[in-house]
Design a protein around this nucleic acid. Structure first.
Lengths: 197, 197, 197, 197
DNA sequence: TATGAATGAGCATTCATTCAT
DNA sequence: TATGAATGAATGCTCATTCAT
C-alpha cells in the first residue's frame, strides 16, 4: 500500500489536470487571455477549485513552468556527451533537440511568449540556455584539443545550433532536414577551402 | 496653411502619439496587459479619444504592427546586395541586422510575443522572414556561381544568421562580437580542413 | 456662469449619491455586508461606476467618514460655550447633543460599528471625543472658578454626559427626558445633602 | 471512564475550542470578516469540522453569544445587593463592573459591534441592560426609602453608571479611577450645595 | 469524529467601448 | 477634435457549505 491511495490519488490527478490544461491553454492563448473559468471548464471542475491547489493564477503559471519544464530533459541530453566524432555527436544532438522542440512545442511557445514581457522569466531562460550551451561548448573544445576541430568561438557555435532550431519552431518554418543541414554548415562552413582552389 | 491643415497636423500628431505609446506599452507589458486607460495616460488624453483614430484596441495593434514595422527597413537592407566578397557583405549585413534589432527592440519583442498566440501574425512573420532570407540565399548562390563559395543549403545558411542573432536579442544574451563571430563560423566552419591535416 | 455646470453638476451629484447611499447601507448592514452591487442599485448606476469616483470600497468608506462626519458640528456646538449658569448651559448642550445623535443616527451607528474592528478608526474616535469633552471640562472649570460649581473631576463629568447619551442611542433605549434628567443628576447628585439632614 | 466518554470529552473540547476561537476572531475582525477557514486554522481542524458542532456560521455566532455571555455574571453581580450604604455598594459595583468589562472585552466588543447591524441582537441587549439597571434602580430606591438618598430618577442614575463605563471601554479611553470618580459624581453632583453657599 | 476535495454563488474590481456634451 | 461619465460583461478570487471517505 503506497502513500497515495484513494482520495489522494484523485487529488494528485486533479493537480496534474490543472497543470496540463494550463500548459495547453496558456500556450495557445497566452497567460493573460486564459481565464480561470476557461481552466475550470477544461478540467471539468468548478471555478474555485484551482485555488485549492494553487494560490493564484500566477502561482499556477509558476508551477506549470517548474513542473512541465523541458530543461531537465535538455540537461540530461547534454550531460556526458560521448567521446566520439563531432559530426556524429552534433548531428544526433541536433536531431534530438529538434525532436524535443516538436514534442514540447506548447511549453516552448509558452516560455517564448512570457519571456517577452516578464524580465524574471527571461533572465532565467537565458541562464538555462547558457548552461546548456556551455555543455556543448566544452564538448567542442575537447574535440579541438584532440585536433578534430579547429580553435573557434565554441559558445557562439553552440548557440547557433540551438538558437536556429528554436527559431525554426517558433516561427513555424518547416524544418525539413534543418538539423543535419545546420550541423554540416557549422562543421564545414560554406567558403571554398584553400585546398580546393 | 489653413486652419484645417493645422488641425490635421495635430490629428496626425495625436495618431502618432498613440502608435508610439502603444508600441512601447504593448512591448513592455504585452497587448492584453495594457489597458486603453494606460494608453490614454501615456498620451495625456481622455479614455475615449483613441477610438477617434482606431476602431478598436485590436485595430490599434494592427496599425502599430503595420506602421511601425521593421520589415521595410529589412527589405531595403537586403535589396541589391553588392557584388562583392561574401566575407565582407555578410559581415556588414550581420552588423546592420544586429544594429536594427537593438534599435527596434520593442517592435521585435512585440512581434515575437504576439506571434506565439496569434497564428495569423505568426504566418505573416514567417512569410516575411522567408522573403528576407531568400534575398540572402540568392546572393550566396551568386557567390557559389562565382566559385567563391562552395555549393550549400543557402536558405539554411541565411536563416542561421538571422535566427541566431534574433534569439540573442530576444533572450537578452549579451551579443559581444556575435555578428562577426557568426559570419566567420558560417563561412569557415569549425572542422579541421583537409589541407590542414 | 459658475465652474460647475452641465456635466460637472451631474458628476458632483453622482458622487454625493454614492456617499449618501453608502452611509445608509453601511450603517444598516455594516461595511462588509454591503456589496458594491448594492450600492450600484441604490444609486441606479452600473456596477463599475463607483470606481470612477472612489478608488476602492475602503476609500468610499473613508470618504463617507470624512465628508459626512458629525464631528465638525459637534465641535461647533462646543466652541464658545456661553458664560452662563451651568444648569442652563449643560441642559441645552445635552438636548442639542441628543438631537444630533437622533439626526445623525446612521453615522453614529456606522462609527460605533467600525470602531470595534478597526483600531485606527477607534483611535481617531477617541481622540475626537476627548477633544470635545475637553471643551466641556474647561467650561465646567470656569464655573468652578466662579464659585458656581464645586471642584470636581471635570473630564469624567463631561464624559458621563456624552457617553450616557450616546449609549442610550446605540442601544435603542427610549430616551424620554434623559438629557435633562442626566444633567440634573450630574449637577445635584443623588445623596442627601448635609443641609437637608 | 469508557471510550465513548473519552470521545465525548474530546468532542466537548473541540466545541469549546470553536467557541473560544470564534469569540476571539469575531471580536477582532468582525463576524463577516472572519471565514470558516480562519476558524478551522485557529482550531487546528479541517474546514468542514465546525459543521459537526454548529449548523451554520450564524448558529456558531448565536452559540458564542449565548454560551460566552457576560450577562449571567452581571446578573449575579446585581442580585441581592447588600443592605449597606450607597457609597460603598455603588463603589464596589462600579469597580466590579469595570473589571468585568476588561476581562470580557472581546465579548463586549462583539456585542457592541453586532448590535449596530442586527436589530434582534440590539433589542435583546437593551432588554438585558434594562433588566440589570432595574436591579440597581431598585436598590437606589431602597436607599431613598431609608432617607440615605434623595428621591431621583433611579433608572437614569443606574444607566449613567453602566453606560459611561461601557463607553470608556469601547472607545479605549483610559479608565484611571473612572469607576470611583463616577460614583462620587452621581452621589454628590457638582453644584455648590445650599449649605455651602 | 474528522478530513479535505469540491461546489457554485458572490465579491471587489477592471476594462473595452459608447456617447452626450 | 476631445472629454470623461457611464455601461455591462468579465475577471481573479473568496467563501459558506456539502459530502464521500
Amino acid at each position: 500500500m503506497t502513500a497515495t491511495t484513494g482520495r489522494r490519488v484523485h487529488a494528485d490527478t486533479r493537480r496534474e489536470q490543472f497543470l496540463d490544461a494550463a500548459l495547453e491553454l496558456f500556450s495557445e492563448r497566452g497567460f493573460d487571455a486564459t481565464s480561470m473559468k476557461d481552466l475550470a471548464e477544461a478540467t471539468g471542475s468548478a471555478p474555485g477549485l484551482a485555488y485549492h491547489y494553487f494560490g493564484s493564477k500566477s502561482e499556477l503559471l509558476a508551477a506549470v513552468l517548474a513542473e512541465r519544464s523541458f530543461f531537465p530533459k535538455l540537461r540530461a541530453m547534454l550531460t556526458d556527451l560521448p567521446d566520439r566524432p563531432a559530426a556524429l555527436v552534433l548531428g544526433e544532438l541536433a536531431e534530438r533537440f529538434d525532436a524535443m522542440l516538436s514534442e514540447r512545442e506548447p511549453m516552448v511557445r509558452l516560455v517564448a511568449h512570457e519571456a517577452q514581457t516578464d524580465g524574471q522569466i527571461r533572465a532565467e531562460l537565458q541562464r538555462r540556455i547558457d548552461d546548456g550551451a556551455g555543455f556543448v561548448a566544452r564538448y567542442l573544445e575537447s574535440r579541438v584539443a584532440l585536433g578534430e576541430l579547429r580553435p573557434h568561438d565554441s559558445m557562439t557555435a553552440a548557440r547557433a545550433i540551438f538558437f536556429t532550431l528554436v527559431t525554426f519552431h517558433l516561427t513555424g518554418t518547416p524544418a525539413g532536414d534543418a538539423p543535419q543541414s545546420l550541423v554540416k554548415l557549422v562543421l564545414e562552413g560554406i567558403a571554398v577551402r584553400a585546398d580546393q582552389e
